[in-house]
């Protein structure tokens, strides 16, 4: 039996000791995708921050690749790729250079070739030499997503990856995530998009402050669609 990529047992997350949702339990294996769904403020992003080591859990157990989460270790950072809502860029680095920094920083040998492929895939070829300040918010989002795929990984953590993407790009992202699973990568994502959840996730965890519920992707998509806008 292969070891799970991520495992949470009665995980409590929150700020200042106050949990934002009920204890979270899940296990995620290679080649699988788990979606975290729920209304705004239900704790999806907070759980993701704990998984990538940016927030210390206030209770329960959380392991990634069989070890307690410690993002200070090189092994953890080599294995976990995350795309949060960080809208921050080096003002002097072009789009292509940002991607090269990530790829080369992770030891990818033919980094420029990989960067070219990602620029093409994420529709950023025309903006390769542009500085991030000149990009639209959607283009910056595509840059962040491309960076998530520019490096080796065992676990891909995405916080609402559908944000600011047009339908075409969302469809391309869906295909990319399915390919990720097929290659043995695990995906943990928070999402409000029923179609993305239905297409990519194997299961979904509906977060709530009273009780968390493990759902099928289809049920989760239906549940998301019911959440008032």
């Amino acid at each position: 039996m292969p070891q799970p990529v991520a495992r949470a047992q009665d995980l409590l997350v929150g700020y200042g000791g106050a949990p934002v949702c009920a204890p979270v339990t899940f296990t995620l294996h290679p080649g699988r995708a788990l979606a975290l769904v729920g209304s705004n403020g239900s704790g999806k992003s907070t759980v993701l921050r704990a998984v990538i080591g940016l927030l210390e859990p206030s209770g329960g157990k959380l392991t990634v690749l069989g070890r307690e989460v410690d993002e200070r270790t090189v092994e953890f950072r080599s294995a976990v790729s995350s795309v949060l809502d960080d809208d921050a860029y080096f003002p002097s680095l072009s789009v292509a250079e940002h991607l090269y920094l990530v790829a080369r920083g992770h030891g990818v040998l033919d980094a420029w070739d990989r960067v070219d492929e990602l620029l093409d895939e994420f529709g950023l070829v025309d903006h390769a030499a542009a500085l991030p300040v000149s990009l639209s918010s959607g283009q910056r989002r595509r840059l962040l997503l491309a960076a998530g795929f520019a490096r080796p990984r065992s676990l891909l953590v995405l916080d609402e990856p559908e944000q600011r993407l047009d339908r075409r790009m969302l469809s391309a992202l869906t295909d990319r995530l399915l390919a990720e699973k097929a290659s043995g990568g695990a995906v943990l994502m928070a999402s409000h998009d029923p179609e993305l959840v239905r297409a990519v996730a194997d299961r979904a965890l509906h977060l709530d402050d009273e009780r968390n519920e493990l759902l099928s992707a289809a049920d989760a998509a239906t549940r998301i669609a019911r959440i008032p806008a």
Binding site: M1, P2, Q3, P4, F26, T27, L28, H29, P30, G31, R32, L34, L65, G66, S78, A79, A103, H106, G107, V108, L109, D110, A111, D113, R114, E117, L118, F149, A150, R151, P152, R153, S154, L156, E180, K181, S183, G184, G185, A186, D202, R203, L214
Partner: peptide, 21 residues
């Protein structure tokens, strides 16, 4: 969700955009 989708890939990153040095 513990049901694995493929072989054990816990030796190094499962997915890589290219050769890693």
């Amino acid at each position: 969700l513990t049901e694995p989708a493929g072989p054990d890939r816990d030796r190094g990153p499962a997915v890589s955009p290219g050769e890693v040095g």
